[in-house]
């Protein structure tokens, strides 16, 4: 099981902040393909992954990052802190 978190417009587009998934995805990119295939709102949120950033267990990561042993994956737009 893996916790998947969404922030900012990704959260709004998908319509929830967090969900727990049973997935066999090997990488973040595989998880994106799996999520995008679920429903239109997911397909929309993940239609352009160049507009998205990902964190794996609360560290920024790449879309080819492996998910083995990972507890938490988060998707969000580029950050606007400061």
């Amino acid at each position: 099981m893996i916790d998947v978190l969404y922030f900012a417009w990704v959260r709004e587009r998908i319509g929830l902040p967090k969900e727990r998934l049973d997935t066999s995805a090997a990488t973040v990119a595989d998880l994106v393909v799996e999520l995008a295939a679920r429903e239109e709102r997911y397909a929309l949120a993940f239609s352009d992954t160049s507009a998205l950033r990902v964190a794996v267990d609360q560290e920024l990561a790449d879309f080819d990052a492996p998910l083995d042993g990972v507890r938490e994956v988060a998707f969000f737009p580029p950050m606007t802190g400061g």
């Binding site: 580029p78 606007t80 802190g81 400061g82």
Partner: peptide, 21 residues
Amino acid sequence: KSRAPFWKKEVTADGAEWVAA
């Protein structure tokens, strides 16, 4: 600015909009 996970949204009378990086 670009590595701490914060996202700003501006709310005006016309609605709300996420600030683009």
